[in-house]
């Protein structure tokens, strides 16, 4: 081989390596990470549900469906209310007819009336997206159509979602579904269009008993933050490591 050519190859290799080293020392940021690093870090939305106050009227579900244009009679919903009836034998009887939209006006649970003297406990548990800090749904989206905002809310881009359903499968809470009209993954957004303008979510506004509250975790004077800091609260299914941000007062281990 021509010695000058060998020298050239050697120098080129060494130069290439030298150039690559400092490049690899830099961290590559994804657009989302870059945006998050300069974004708004003063807000982290969180939710408190006081199950002691919920009476199962279903106004929250109604309000949500109307506000967020989820077809009213379709059996899917962004938020719902579950009824728990615990009997003497320790069994839980759980139901949520139409997501609790029309309230729980009948004592029947799946065509079965439980005698009043058999009941030891009965309560309602409203459910909605937990806007997890470590959302499994965002992790599994193959196209990045679902994402987490700087203030902690998980949203879906309807123009980019391919409708594979992987996020629906990945959510341990069953809050996701396909929108019957748009055919894309759909979920509770904490009414992002409202809270980002300083309004309350539709369900919070509709609740006559103050069972639902939304607030900013990063603001120590926010009533929601105060509750989470000072009271005994629990989250749903913490074993999945998703770090849910909907906190429950009056939680029971039988809640699913």
């Amino acid at each position: 081989m021509n010695p000058s050519r060998r020298k050239f190859v050697k120098t080129a290799l060494a130069g290439g390596l030298a150039a690559a080293l400092p490049l690899s020392a830099l961290k590559m940021l994804s657009p989302a990470e870059a945006h998050a690093s300069i974004g708004n870090d003063k807000v982290r939305w969180a939710f408190v549900v006081d199950t002691e106050k919920c009476v199962g009227c279903g106004l929250c579900v109604k309000a949500c469906k109307l506000e967020n244009e989820v077809p009213y009679d379709a059996p899917v919903t962004r938020t719902w209310v579950e009824r728990y009836v615990i009997t003497r034998d320790g069994k839980s009887h759980i139901d949520t007819p139409k997501g609790g939209r029309d309230g729980f006006t009948s004592p029947k649970i799946r065509d079965e009336v439980i005698p009043a003297d058999e009941i030891t406990q009965a309560f309602f548990v409203p459910k909605l997206c937990n806007q997890c800090s470590n959302p499994a749904c965002v992790q599994v989206c193959p196209v990045g159509a679902t994402f987490q905002t700087d203030d902690g809310v998980v949203l879906v881009d309807r123009s980019w979602c391919i409708g594979c359903g992987y996020c629906i499968m990945a959510c341990p809470y069953g809050v996701r579904f396909f929108h019957p009209v748009y055919k894309t993954a759909e979920k509770c957004t904490f009414c992002y269009h409202r809270i980002s303008k300083g309004l309350k979510t539709a369900c919070v506004q509709a609740c006559p008993f103050g069972a639902r509250q939304i607030g900013n975790l990063k603001d120590p004077s926010d009533p929601v933050t105060k509750i989470i800091m000072t009271q005994r609260v629990a989250v749903l299914k913490s074993e999945y490591g998703t770090k849910p941000q909907v906190y429950y007062i009056g939680f029971d281990e039988r809640v699913r």
């Binding site: 965002v138 992790q139 599994v140 989206c141 193959p142 196209v143 990045g144 159509a145 980019w160 979602c161 391919i162 409708g163 594979c164 359903g165 992987y166 396909f178 055919k183 894309t184």
Partner: peptide, 21 residues
Amino acid sequence: HLQHPFRGINVMFTPHFTSAI
């Protein structure tokens, strides 16, 4: 299976690598 079969190609455009798909 896809609800939006014509968007399937999005996987190639914006692959989100934390997803197995």
